[in-house]
Design a protein around this nucleic acid. Structure first.
Lengths: 100, 100
DNA sequence: ATATAACTATCGGTTTTCCGATATTAAGGG
DNA sequence: CCCTTAATATCGGAAAACCGATAGTTATAT
């Protein structure tokens, strides 16, 4: 089956993942593979994590488990709002998808 | 309120729009502004339309109203599947968003 | 018919986003 | 302790995505 890139949501997804449960970089990569079908390369995942950390949106403990900072939670919330505004007709999209 | 780019979904959204209802470039720009908060420039919207047309995914009539081709419908369906696989926990995301 | 405005189109270039290659560090087994 | 493997990190660069500026086209009103 064809897979589509749909770039631009990597940071958003990472933040969403570790909001739900603190994760290491490797665990994040596995979760992305499950959903998107292809595993992101280390050169994708770790710079993304570094960037989020530099922005103060995520933090890591000794075991390299990442979690959101307070600022990160606010940012995620803001992202979610934009997301659901942009895809305001998700139900319609979903039913359309199932029909075929 | 902060708006986030979330790049990479322009073509997807355009195809979704004109699947629901045939639209001109200007109408598509207005719909994008409604959802995302900022109106894409002509330099964004028309090259995107040209690209989709060159790929045989959309077609236009005399009035420049765009609609999906058969191939475009298949492509949209495939995109939708990828989308809902990637965002497989939309309900959770939505309830999280509302909580705050 | 002509002026004005709105829409469409194209180009070059900038930014964003991602990845391959490579290096470094940490973990586990013998 | 050393070897192997896995995880993490960094860099340069490639590709994708987008936009500003500009120009051409069409529509509308007077």
């Amino acid at each position: 089956m064809t897979r589509h890139e749909m770039k631009g949501f990597l940071s958003f997804l990472i933040m969403w993942f570790i909001y739900k449960k603190e994760m290491t970089g490797a665990e994040i990569a596995i979760e992305l593979e499950k959903r998107k079908g292809n595993k992101p390369s280390p050169g994708t995942i770790y710079p993304a994590l570094k960037d989020l950390k530099d922005k103060g949106l995520i933090k890591d403990d000794r075991d390299k488990k990442y979690s959101l900072t307070k600022k990160g939670e606010e940012e995620l919330d803001s992202h979610l709002k934009t997301f659901f505004d942009t895809f305001c007709d998700l139900d319609e999209m979903k039913s359309c998808c199932r029909k075929k």
